[in-house]
Amino acid sequence: MPPSATTSTAPPTLADRIEDLLPQTQCTKCGYPACRPYAEAIAEGRAAHNQCPPGGAEGVARLSQLLGRAVIPLNPVHGREQPRLLAVIDEQACIGCTLCIQACPVDAIAGAAKQMHTVIDALCTGCELCVAPCPVDCIALVEATPGRSGWQAWSQPQADAARARHDWRAVRLKRDKQENDARLAAKAAAKLREVEAAEAGTPEEQAENARKKAIIQAAMERARLKKLASQDNPSGS
């Protein structure tokens, strides 16, 4: 798995320094889809520095020191500080739907379609995102660090590893989508060539081929425009 660190020699931005202080659980409780967007929002003044329950009071204090702001209580709207949680799958009840795998932001769940899934304990950040998608309610959350919460329940090496897995997952998903889009484009182009080669025939056959050709060309144009839009806005925001 490639490391998340960049080889750039540019000095870290404020968002970079804020992100380094976040626990990287990628839980979205802060109101943002991952730790990085939250760090950027803080740096740009769009979010407060007390919206990260996994970081807890110590996390708020760390951010306060970096930002030169007052230490304030964790905002209860985003949750409460608590011991780190661990997801546990009831393997007898699991139906292998893969929805939990798709939801896990750090690739901490192993399994395949229609096969039993299991959580890799050492990789689970306790984000809770796998619970809601499960259609058979077979995922429970247990305390992994009784009596310890915030940064007392989560180490910097764990945060760094979770960040690397999250970043690599994003790269992998983007690559998989590009490869799938390329396969679909090649399939559409081949079908278009097939239709164009069969244009001769009765008027009815020609009309049907013209209809198919129009449908394929419209689909290819939609795919082209969608690709251009994603290139113009790679973050999807």
Rank of each mutant, 00 (worst) to 15 (best):
Q92P: 00
L192V: 01
W168I: 02
P146H: 04
L123P: 00
C124E: 05
L129G: 01
Q156V: 13
A185R: 13
T145W: 05
E179W: 11
W168K: 10
A189G: 08
C127H: 07
D181H: 08
A113C: 00
C100E: 04
R165T: 03
L99W: 13
G147L: 09
L192I: 01
A190F: 06
L86T: 10
D90S: 09
V171R: 15
G96H: 03
A190D: 11
P133C: 02
D90R: 10
R175D: 09
I89Q: 05
C104V: 02
E196I: 10
R193W: 02
V195W: 00
P133G: 01
Q102A: 12
A159W: 03
A122M: 10
V119G: 04
L123Q: 08
T125L: 06
A122Q: 14
G111A: 03
K114F: 07
A197F: 01
Q92R: 11
D181N: 12
E179M: 14
A144T: 07
C124K: 05
A113Y: 09
V88N: 07
T98N: 04
A182K: 14
V142I: 15
M116I: 10
G111E: 03
D181E: 14
P133W: 01
K114D: 10
R172M: 10
V171P: 03
E179Q: 15
V195H: 01
R183W: 10
L129N: 05
E194R: 13
V119M: 03
A170H: 10
I120Q: 13
A112T: 15
V88R: 15
R148D: 09
A153T: 05
W154A: 02
A159S: 12
A108I: 01
A159V: 02
A198Q: 15
A144H: 12
A170Y: 03
M116Q: 12
A93T: 14
D90G: 11
Q102D: 14
A103D: 05
K177D: 07
A161C: 03
I89S: 04
E143P: 02
A110V: 11
A110Q: 14
S149A: 15
P146S: 06
R172I: 11
V88E: 14
K174N: 09
A182H: 12
D121A: 15
R165D: 03
A190V: 01
C134T: 03
G150Q: 07
R183E: 12
I139M: 07
S155K: 06
D90C: 08
D176I: 09
A198M: 12
R148T: 04
E128Y: 05
E128S: 12
T98C: 02
G111D: 03
A110Y: 11
L173F: 01
G96L: 00
Q178P: 00
R175Y: 04
C130S: 04
R183C: 02
I120L: 13
R163K: 12
I95Q: 13
V171T: 12
T145V: 06
I95N: 10
K187W: 13
V131S: 02
A113R: 11
Q102E: 13
A185C: 07
I109L: 08
A164D: 14
E143N: 08
R193N: 15
K174H: 11
Q92K: 13
